[in-house]
Design a binder for these strands. Structure first.
Lengths: 236, 236
DNA sequence: GTAATAGTGTCTTTCAGACAATATCGA
DNA sequence: TCGATATTGTCTGAAAGACACTATTAC
């Protein structure tokens, strides 16, 4: 009972698509590579899985090592890429993860990374990313766009407590659309098991104070619970 | 420029969830394993990726070798599993694929497989599958259930040409519900770019002959195009 | 008071679901 | 003719989108 010798032994990498919303724009966490291949080129944070390590552990470890960010949100596997033709060093399988994060944290470059920074998604799409990271990024963004429709995952971009307007701006940034504040308010607050009203209100706002909400205690981040969902406008 | 020596070198497996609809029931393709580990136990078809081979190629190859079925439908990656704690031989990463197939083909066991057979999903869920294949199967079924809502993928279970009633029975089998034939007919035929009427009708039916449809030429199997989608009843 | 933002109500259209009614076959 | 299945139509309720309107703050 052993693994057949014909089986290929492959290095396994993890790459993490970390998204956040800053200044009402969707941004991705990138690093400039300190080592070849693609030295100096921007890339998704990531690295190789070590012996006796899970891919989730590798993703968390690499994220801390390269960017100083400790995954605060929900880490979700996207899919795997490769192993053929994606790394000039030879066949490598990459397992990609998606992390949606509030934007408190300022990345600081660590080991193997010259720089670590948030980049506007529009700019990132113009950038020539290392490896097949442009494809991985596109898949991650599409997953995030689809998932906030029918899961409470949009709250992962917000701090613990937030207003309906803040939540709406998350949806607007991720989908790249403008939403009617009045209709959004109705849908968000009337969707069962999505939001919980703290009973408190904001103070520093320009107009009428907004009620402060948090994620409903019955909402489980990962699963699909929004019924009815908050659907993207058909224009997308 | 070389892969760091600390990187683990892992055997990479592929496992394929092949689903079909037989006798109005959702069935999965299983093999009884001819070799340890889990010798004699039912499992998803699959095997190890060889050198210089893509995981898609490995999936197709293993499917033919173990079951004699040549993928006719749409092969789609589910996600990866492992590498920790899923194979008694040691760390192994598995990339799982989903294939939706019409049920023409009769599997015949080949290399490493004692038997290859379609098993009713309900029975498969009672079965003690090898490795983590119960989880992979559950994920594959859930992906199929979700995907036929907003993609034309349900037609992958049908022959080239089919009637609305046949398509409805696919939805009923995959979702495990009964659908109103009249409402389903209206939704299926009025969804743009989903079905194309061949202009011909069935002859051997019991009642009024049914129009024969095929997938609309503009429909791309993989992408989400059904607008509006064919939603699952809320009871699910 | 005005400007600004929060939140509610109302109307129209679309669509899902229930189900009546009609159409077209075999026997 | 009847039984069976296909297909169309009609009604009702839910919800989305547009948007008038009210509420509550800072100034």
């Amino acid at each position: 009972m052993s693994i057949p010798p014909s089986a290929a032994l492959l290095p396994v990498a993890v790459d993490i698509v970390v998204l956040t919303v800053r200044d009402q724009r969707l941004c991705v966490l990138l690093v400039d590579r300190g080592l070849p291949p693609f030295q100096g080129r921007p890339a998704l944070p990531g690295g190789f899985v070590l012996a006796d390590e899970s891919t989730e552990q590798a993703a968390s470890r690499e994220l801390v090592e390269e960017t100083g960010l400790r995954p605060p949100g929900h880490l979700e596997q996207l899919r795997s890429y490769g192993p053929v033709g994606r790394d000039p060093r030879g066949p490598t399988l990459s397992v990609a993860y998606l992390l949606l994060s509030p934007s408190f944290e300022v990345p600081r470059p660590g080991r193997d990374a010259l720089r670590a920074y948030w980049l506007d998604l529009e700019d990132a799409r113009q950038t020539d990313l290392a490896f097949d990271h442009a494809q991985i990024l596109a898949d991650g963004v599409e997953r995030a766009r689809a998932k906030i429709e029918y899961s409470p995952l949009a709250t992962a971009f917000c701090p613990e407590e937030f207003t309906i307007a803040e939540l709406r701006k998350v949806y607007e940034a991720v989908w790249g659309v403008e939403l009617d504040p009045r209709n959004f308010h109705r849908k968000a607050t009337r969707t069962p098991r999505f939001l919980a009203d703290t009973g408190r209100v904001t103070s520093e706002s320009a107009g009428r104070p907004a009620s402060i909400y948090r994620l409903h205690p019955d909402a489980r981040m990962a699963e699909a619970v929004l019924q009815p969902p908050l659907l993207r406008p058909a224009s997308l």
